Computed example of a mutant assay.
Amino acid sequence: MPDALSVAGAVPHASDGRAGLTRLRRRPEFWLLLVILIVGALFSALAPGFLSLPNVIDLLETYSVQAVMAMGLFVVLVAGGIDISFAATASVSQYCAALLASQMGLPAPLVILAGLLIGTALGCLNAALIFYLRITSIIATIAMMSVSFSLLMYFSGGRSIYTLPDWWTTRITFFQTETASGDLARITLPIVLMIVVALVTWAMMTRLSVGRQLYAMGGNAEAARRIGVPIARLHFVAYGYLGFTAALAGMLQAHRVGESVPNAFANTELAVLSAAVLGGASLTGGIGTVPGVLLGIVLLAMLQNGLNLLGVSSYFFQIVIGLTILVSTSVTVISSRRGRRLRGIGEASTHG
């Protein structure tokens, strides 16, 4: 009898394990991690030093700025919107903060606060245009991108600011080690801030009610409104948060390079967007995870760095980005059509 009980008890555990594995295989993060491992092994074989600790740390620091912006864009995508103006927001916030620091000599707390407020305000302006004027999000943000960037270039004359104060440009290292080859690997401020922003975004979207409301609004805005979800406020939360992270990324970039360049973020929108959708964030809203977006950033960073080490033209990487958005969008459309078809079959069988 005990043997029978043990066998009977083993069956659910086996089925639970298979069900868990099936659920894991359905998640985009699983396949993305698998692709990252394959790409890493391939480039490691073709380009010696690709997986060396200094190169990996350098990749993390280089793409930390895009990762910070991707966290904000992820929130907007989950909410069912899209924003193309975040790169311009980052540029405007960075340059205005640089002017306050270099020409007016304001202290660090005021400069940082001013830069973050400018970015948040520009994000909230997008939210107002989209919600109150009913302008389609992609149209409103493309217009804001054009206006913001053009005004920045007009008033700055395209001139960079090289006289940033020491508190802004001084390299901050939290951990440093020397490899056997004599190279230094450093954990610096951009990497730490990337991790902090990712954790804050993850906590907001998974542990707070505002995150659940953003997912609900992105999944079905009308249904969310009917159950009392504050749609207007959530628009300002999503786009304001993206403006905040864009401003933070802008000032972080100036810290990395030691100067403020008006067009430093030109043409970065598609790279950040492709990382988000590659990580599973749907362009139709309501879907996506922070780990998925981070994995998307890692994969794109590995592809670009590996192709550079192999001497492949940078234009090929742009092809990869375009194909990523095209394939991700196609999968989203096909999945939504299949879901509607299955719901239609279910409703027909219920009525029958």
Rank of each mutant, 00 (worst) to 15 (best):
A249W: 03
V111L: 09
L51V: 15
E347Q: 14
R337C: 02
G292W: 03
R18E: 07
R134T: 06
L248C: 11
V76L: 10
A70P: 07
L116H: 00
G280H: 01
A128D: 03
F30A: 06
M69C: 12
P2C: 02
A275P: 00
N263V: 02
V237E: 00
S146D: 03
E61Y: 03
L32T: 00
A221Y: 02
A276T: 12
M153Q: 11
A198V: 09
A276S: 14
L37S: 12
G292A: 03
L32Q: 01
G296H: 10
T177D: 14
H235L: 13
A10C: 00
G240L: 04
T329H: 14
W31L: 13
A198M: 15
L189Y: 08
G158T: 05
A348H: 15
R212Y: 09
G9W: 04
I130F: 08
M153S: 09
L46D: 04
V327A: 13
P48S: 12
Y154Q: 13
G322A: 05
I161S: 12
L189D: 00
L295D: 03
I142P: 04
P165W: 10
F265Q: 04
L278E: 02
N267H: 09
G240H: 00
T62F: 13
A246P: 01
L110P: 00
N220K: 07
P2I: 08
